Simulated scan of single mutants.
Amino acid sequence: MLFIIPPKVHLLDIIGPAHIFYEAKEYEADIQLHFVTISNDIEINSSAGLHFTKLEPFHTFQLSENDFVFVPGIEFSLISDNQFYLANKPFFEWIKNQYDNGANICSICTGTFLIASSGILNEKSCTTHWKYFSEFNEKYPEIELVKNRLFVAEERLYSSAGVTSGIDLALYVLETEFGSKMAADIAKEVVIYFRRSESDPQLSVFLQYRNHLDTRIHDAQDYIIKHIDSSLALEDIAENVHMSPRNLTRLFKKTTSITIGAYLEKLRLDRAIHLLAEGNKVSYVANQCGLKSSNQLRNLLKKYGEILPAQIKSLL
């Protein structure tokens, strides 16, 4: 496993996945970890100010199909600097050669910009951080950008949305290389009790519809999430935020562009998918989602059947 350390690297992009494979190594997985510079510099300053030192030069490695390279995100000021690409042209040529030799290339966050610059993503699909979709499309129109996905895997090329999704991608790679039990054990070891999959969106519904400044509606959303396992009544929500049900209904829709009922339904769907993916029984999941019966849960899942992961569809 090679972890590329570019200038102004985002710490969690590199440390998160590296720790996953470190733990796997502790579980006796046959893994070697290398931390590699993209230039001749053996000391690199991260975006947060923490220095990496004693790095290995990239050109000392010749890789094959058993090897993985992780390319993390960096500050966008470098991503948009043509001089940065020119100065590191040898690295981009090297990473293309490694891919041509069979190596697996993984990017995290804006690291997708870096591997795209090597040309290996041309005519293929990938993802990157949602904040930079427009810039990526403008810079690399020949690459299919998949939006609202945690990570994308195609022909030994893996790209992820950024930050914690790099950990999800690392667990996915671990599972494909060493099996589901190993991935589950490591997820438990690092206290990640739910592992998100390739089909999960970048922004879960628990984060969506919160891009507003109305504290009363935030309080209402917090109350709904906290009590999602109960049969919520509009009157209870309204009382908690000291509003009338009618005024709350009107203001909630105006502020979030979604009704309270639709919001609650999406929350329950998201939670149900996660709980079912962990292997819980349908009756238990229905109860945890505040639904009256297993049939009510199945009806909810069928309503959104086209977006369900395959493993969940099989339960319908």
Rank of each mutant, 00 (worst) to 15 (best):
T112S: 15
K253A: 12
T249W: 00
P72N: 12
E177C: 08
G261W: 06
D200K: 00
V36I: 13
D200N: 09
S165I: 05
K254W: 02
I192R: 09
G119R: 04
K139G: 01
Q311S: 13
L251Q: 14
K292Y: 11
I74N: 01
D185E: 15
D168C: 02
P17G: 01
P201F: 02
N295G: 12
K139L: 08
S125C: 10
E278N: 04
F194M: 03
H34W: 03
H10Y: 12
C109W: 07
K302T: 13
S165A: 15
L171Y: 07
E175K: 14
E239F: 03
I225F: 11
I42A: 08
I15H: 08
E278A: 10
F136K: 06
Q288E: 15
G16P: 08
E65V: 07
P141H: 08
K313E: 14
L86Q: 14
L55S: 11
E123K: 13
A116L: 10
H218N: 13
I224E: 10
H51N: 12
S46H: 07
D236L: 11
F76R: 04
A153T: 10
S77R: 06
L234G: 03
E138H: 12
I186H: 01
A87M: 11
A233M: 13
P245E: 06
Y172S: 02
T249Y: 01
S199V: 06
S165Q: 10
F178D: 11
Y140W: 08
F58N: 08
V190E: 01
P6T: 10
K281W: 05
E265K: 11
N104T: 13
I224C: 05
F3L: 04
Y263T: 01
H212R: 05
D67R: 01
H129E: 07
K139V: 03
K8C: 08
F92R: 06
L203P: 02
L86S: 12
I120P: 03
A310G: 05
I42K: 12
V36R: 03
I258Q: 07
I258Y: 04
V71N: 07
Y209S: 02
E56M: 12
I31D: 09
I186G: 01
D168F: 02
P6C: 09
N101A: 15
N97A: 14
K292N: 14
I74F: 02
N247G: 00
K147C: 11
T110A: 10
P245I: 04
D41I: 00
S293G: 11
R250E: 15
L63S: 12
T164G: 03
K226C: 01
S159V: 01
N66P: 09
S283Y: 09
L2Y: 02
Y209M: 02
N88R: 09
I95G: 04
R268K: 15
V71G: 04
T215M: 13
E123G: 02
S39G: 12
H227P: 09
